[in-house]
């Protein structure tokens, strides 16, 4: 109960803070913390061995996405 509560509160707080942050590149740390909390919540939701694969696939996918967003944003601002 306490562990789920910690994951839920941190994910909700960081999602709200990521949306209301004005600059695009400064949103990415909050998005990363939200991904950590959601990956923890996936494992807590269903303790079954394939769930490890689902959690790691979700986390790697979102990491790749934020890397692509950051590098493309920088390349556009240089022009």
């Amino acid at each position: 109960m306490i562990v789920e509560g910690i994951c839920v509160v941190i994910a909700a707080y960081c999602a709200i803070r990521a949306v209301f942050e004005p600059k695009t590149l400064k949103k990415l740390p909050y998005l990363n913390v939200m991904n950590f909390a959601v990956a923890g919540a996936i494992v807590l939701l269903m303790p079954y061995p394939i769930t490890i694969g689902a959690a790691i696939a979700y986390f790697i996918g979102s990491t790749l996405e934020s890397n692509a967003i950051a590098s493309t944003f920088a390349r556009l601002e240089e022009q």
């Binding site: 562990v3 910690i6 994951c7 941190i10 803070r17 909050y30 913390v33 950590f36």
Partner: peptide, 13 residues
């Protein structure tokens, strides 16, 4: 699990 989420929240959040 809760400890690691709190730790990454302290660093970046």
């Amino acid at each position: 699990i809760a400890g690691c989420v709190i730790a990454i929240f302290l660093v970046e959040g």
